[in-house]
């Protein structure tokens, strides 16, 4: 079972925030989904190994050589805020209210 506090904790890990109302709705839905997931408890997996990927490929190597691909300008085209060819982000520390 998953409770409201756990849902709030997971939201923090996932860098999401919810209003109280959303948290209530999500908790209910997460409970239903986890109840469905708990059906797997009835499966006896014995010594079955986990299957993480279905190709039989292993350690695919390639030569590590640089290729000319995209320009700095192209790579910066979708950046929301930039300055002098660099990505601009807000201060890492809290600026408090009302500061630019």
């Amino acid at each position: 079972m998953i409770d409201r506090d756990q849902v709030a904790h997971v939201a923090g890990l996932a860098k999401l925030q919810f209003t109280d109302q959303e948290l209530t709705a999500f908790t209910k839905q997460m409970e239903d989904i986890m109840a469905m997931a708990d059906q797997l408890n009835e499966v006896d997996v014995g010594d079955t190994t986990p299957l993480y990927q279905v190709t039989d490929l292993k350690n695919v190597f390639r030569e590590d050589k640089p290729v000319l691909w995209q320009t700095r300008d192209q790579l910066l085209e979708n950046v929301p805020e930039k300055q002098n060819g660099l990505i601009k982000v807000p201060s890492i520390l809290d600026n408090g209210e009302g500061e630019a």
Binding site: I2, Q6, V7, V10, A11, L13, A14, L16, F26, Q29, M30, I33, M34, A37, L40, V43, V45, T48, T49, P50, L51, Y52
Partner: peptide
Amino acid sequence: RRIMLGTFSLSAGFYDAYFNKAAKVRH
């Protein structure tokens, strides 16, 4: 919802019970 479900099933204490169990059933 999916990000939350995934984050939960990969989180410490739940990884074996959920993600890894699912990977075994997948097999």
